[in-house]
Write a protein that binds this DNA or RNA. Structure first.
Lengths: 192, 192
DNA sequence: CGATTCTTTGAAAACAGTCAATCTGTGTGG
DNA sequence: CCACACAGATTGACTGTTTTCAAAGAATCG
């Protein structure tokens, strides 16, 4: 629902009714059933997507056919492919709904225009980007520093709300470990 | 030298002489000898640092005392700790010169002000942030998808200029593999 | 309920890490 | 200019972790 998105905006920075109206005018809602795709490899990504309901995964497939999950997106988060968005080149990612989902879409031209017309919004998206970058730096640190067990402990601590909404083997994929290893790690933790 | 920085700005976006002058006024140059620190864990980072000469490494130390390199910065790149910069909290990183280096420093207050006063500069730093984020997403992908050998191949392809300016064991640290493993990988590659 | 997806378990193999010793190159001080 | 110290790289033997493959069990969706 668009309302979820408008409430989100109100919560994040001071915004007038007229400005909210501007957003309403450019938003469309896309409903996705479980296993439907928001984006498929090869398509160009030229919009912004706000998740108002459900869970999405963003992943790549390597030459051997193995999937590697780059990101999960749940309610009140964004999804998309920044690379394709900025270069206009075909995406190398897939974005799939893991539950029935509702997505608020804003076309690139409108989104970029609103960031200028509504300076507070521009500042907000920038702050969002800053935080995303910091988070990804921390994920890199975890990835090069931690053992498989530490990575999992770190994940469930950072994203407890995601943990129990997605299949285990997808957490493994996100952490870069095999599903069997994750199963064994959980087994060990349970024994303690 | 500050000139390297001013040339960099001229190269990156249209800028007037008066605007360049504004930058000159707030820049200071810091010279670092090999093994000197630009930032040490526990200090607050409240400036922006442009590398005009030399190589820096940004790293963290874990409980076992092992160092993990998050980033290398060479000429025409930036260094710093975004997390401490935005939160005002003590840094968890160390930034050390690997060669004698020259760093152009701009205090946070001036930097943030110039981004508003000179809109093209604000846009530029945002674009920079976008690209940094995309790069870190790709590093995450490499980290969870590739074998040690593939990670190394990926690194020397992406950063050939860094590869031969820093000790091998630091590349290993950046990739999250042991120095011995990297040595063996290189040995194998050489045989082929 | 039937089919599919997900998780678990076992055994073997591959991979990467650790420890210790040696080798190499570089630079510094006497 | 040499000798020595030091940092870095390599090598070997061993250990430990993680992956792979295969099969069986559990859970869930339609």
């Amino acid at each position: 629902m668009v309302n979820v998105f408008l409430d989100y905006l109100k919560d994040k920075f001071p915004i007038t009714e007229e400005e909210l109206e501007k957003f309403s005018q450019v938003c469309t809602v896309k409903k996705l059933r479980r296993r439907q795709y928001l984006l498929q490899e090869g398509d160009v990504w030229n919009k912004n997507a706000f998740v108002s309901k459900g869970v999405l995964r963003t992943y790549r497939v390597d030459e051997k056919g193995t999937e590697h999950i780059i990101q999960f997106s749940i309610e009140n988060w964004w999804a998309g492919d920044r690379q394709s968005y900025h270069t206009g080149l075909p995406s190398t990612f897939n974005i799939e709904a893991l539950e029935d989902a509702e997505i608020v879409l804003i076309p690139k031209t409108d989104f970029d225009r609103l960031q200028i017309e509504i300076p507070k919004f521009g500042e907000f998206t920038r702050a969002l980007l800053e935080r995303s970058f910091i988070a990804s730096q921390n994920r890199i640190h975890a990835s090069i520093s931690y053992s498989a067990e530490e990575k999992y402990a770190d994940f469930i601590k950072a994203y407890p709300d995601i943990t129990n909404r997605i299949p285990q083997h997808m957490i493994a994929s996100y952490l870069g470990i095999s599903p069997e290893t994750l199963s064994r790690i959980r087994n060990q933790i349970a024994k303690k």
